[in-house]
Nucleic acid binder design. Structure first.
Length: 261
DNA sequence: ATGGTTGCACGGCAA
C-alpha cells in the first residue's frame, strides 16, 4: 500500500496537478489537507476519474478541510473535533485493516508564545488533546497511520537553520516538545526518517514569500507520516516529491509518501 | 526590523 499526504492549499485549484502526482507517485491512498472547500462543492469526479473510487471529504468554506481518497474501500469514516471547534482538521478511515488519520494541525500564528498569541495557545491545546486521546488507546493492537500537515519541523535537519528558527513558530522548543509527546502517545515511528537519516536535510514546504524557493531553499519539513510500531516490519520505502513545488500554480507544500507491504 | 505571497462563495484573514 502506497499512502501519501499532501497539503494542497485548495483542492479545486490543484486538480490537474493531482493527476500528475497520481501518475508520478501512484498512491493507493491520498490524504489531503487545506482543501478549502465545503463538501457540496468537493470535486469528487476528478478523483473518480483518477481511479480513487472511495473518497471521504470533510471541508468548510475558505479554511482548513481534509480528505482521504482511496483505490480500496474506506470503512468506519469518522472525524474528531478538537478544542470545541468544528474546523475540519481530522478525518479517520479504515483501509485494509489500517486505521488512517489524516490530520491538519493549526499553524499557530506568528508569535510562539501562548500568552501573547491565541492561535499558538490553540495549537498547543490541540496537540495536547490529540496526544491524550491517542495515549488512551495504547495497547489496543490496532495498526495505525497518522499523516498530514503537523505544522511542526521537529528535527534540526527539518529546517534551514536550527539556530535562527528556534524563535519561529513551527520549530520553537515548546512545539518540538509537544510533537515528541504526541509521538510517544502510541510510540509512533517517523516513517520518513526511518529511511532518510536525520543527518540529511529535508523539506516538505517552502514559503510563497520568497523570490526563489529553490535557490534560497529555506524550507521546512512540516508534513509527516507516522506509523504504529507493529507496522515497522511492513515499511518498504518513503519519498518526498519536491518537484511539484515548481509547478504552476504551486501549493506551498509537496507530497510525502510511504509504502507498506 | 520589515516585508515578502497566496487563497478564499471579494475582502479581511489565515497561512
Amino acid at each position: 500500500m502506497r499512502i501519501a499526504t499532501w497539503n494542497v492549499n485548495s483542492v479545486r485549484l490543484r486538480l490537474e496537478q493531482l493527476g500528475r502526482i497520481d501518475e508520478a507517485l501512484r498512491p493507493d491512498v491520498l490524504c489531503l489537507q487545506e482543501t478549502k472547500v465545503s463538501d457540496n462543492l468537493f470535486p469528487h469526479d476528478a478523483f473518480t476519474a483518477l481511479g480513487y473510487a472511495h473518497v471521504a471529504a470533510l471541508g468548510q468554506k475558505s479554511y482548513n478541510g481534509v480528505a482521504i481518497a482511496s483505490r480500496r474501500p474506506l470503512t468506519d469514516v469518522t472525524t474528531r473535533n478538537w478544542c470545541g471547534r468544528e474546523d475540519c482538521r481530522h478525518l479517520i478511515a479504515t483501509i485494509d485493516g489500517l486505521e488512517v488519520h489524516c490530520l491538519y494541525v493549526p499553524a499557530g500564528g506568528d508569535i510562539p508564545d501562548p500568552e501573547a498569541n491565541e492561535k499558538f495557545a490553540h495549537k498547543l491545546a490541540f496537540l495536547d488533546a490529540v496526544t491524550t486521546w491517542f495515549a488512551d488507546q495504547s495497547g489496543d493492537g490496532v495498526p495505525r497511520v497518522l499523516l498530514g500537515d503537523f505544522n511542526i519541523a521537529p528535527l534540526e535537519s527539518d529546517v534551514w537553520s536550527h539556530r535562527q528558527m528556534l524563535k519561529v513558530v513551527s520549530h520553537s522548543p515548546v512545539e518540538i516538545a509537544k510533537a515528541g509527546e504526541l509521538q510517544t502517545s502510541l510510540a509512533w515511528l517517523d516513517a520518513v526518517r526511518h529511511f532518510i537519516p536525520p543527518s540529511q536535510r529535508l523539506s516538505t514546504w517552502w514559503s510563497y514569500r520568497s523570490a526563489d524557493w529553490k535557490s534560497s531553499d529555506r524550507g521546512r519539513r512540516l508534513d509527516h507520516i507516522w506509523v504504529t510500531p507493529e507496522l515497522a516490519p511492513r515499511l518498504v520505502g518513503a519519498e518526498i516529491f519536491p518537484e511539484s513545488r515548481g509547478w504552476q500554480p504551486a501549493s506551498d507544500h509537496v507530497p510525502v509518501l510511504v509504502e507498506l507491504s
